[in-house]
Amino acid sequence: MALADGPLAAALRDVRFAWRGRAPFALAVNSLDIARGERMLLVGPSGGGKSTLLSLLCGVLTPGSGSVTVLGTDIGRLPGAARDRFRAEHLGVVFQMFNLLPYASVLDNVLLPLRFAPERRARAARAGVRAEGTRLLRSLGLEEQLHDGARASSLSVGQQQRVAAARALIGAPEIIVADEPTSALDRDRQTAFLHLLFGEAARAGTTVIMVSHDASLAPQFDRIIHLADVATISRGSP
């Protein structure tokens, strides 16, 4: 696909975004580039607009002005349904917690994005969709007996995060976006988790964009950006 050949995974230009309502909050990013295949850590304090920035990158929120270009597509200009489809096809998302549908099986959770992303499904289907899901789970260290039988809610937090990583990785999307995926884990598990995630990401040349309030994760990333350096946050009446 021609789009994906561009040098940048994502580029933000003159982005302005404002939450209205009882706690008005505005975010401004003049310029931010993220290269393809890069592992980038975005550091900032809690509640500092990191999640808003990620939502803009994923096209769940659209900027009031400016452009968010992901893989060469200005996603702010796409109509809503196309933006959802774009996110399904090109982005894998991992949250801090509560990543999974608690009542569904582990494997169903992993395969969920494929329902909305035919291209990813086609890629995952080369080895068989379920086989690919099982492979990812196994390489992320989840024993096979958990895949089908267990409800996702019966797993430990660490296991849940690894299931979420498998879901983000399945079908090899170009970009993984992770919002504090390790903050619920202890230090050893954090390192192990990132190791596994990066291992799988490297296989497919996936770009990893992660936000955290914890700068100590920095050594494992290619680039660290402090949110304060790229974004201006304003609170109160805009």
Binding site: D84, F98, L101, L112
Partner: peptide, 15 residues
């Protein structure tokens, strides 16, 4: 809401 946020994050449209 979490459940719905998960669905949205994997690309489920609001409809």
């Amino acid at each position: 809401r979490r459940e719905m946020a998960v669905l949205r994050s994997v690309g489920a449209p609001p409809r």
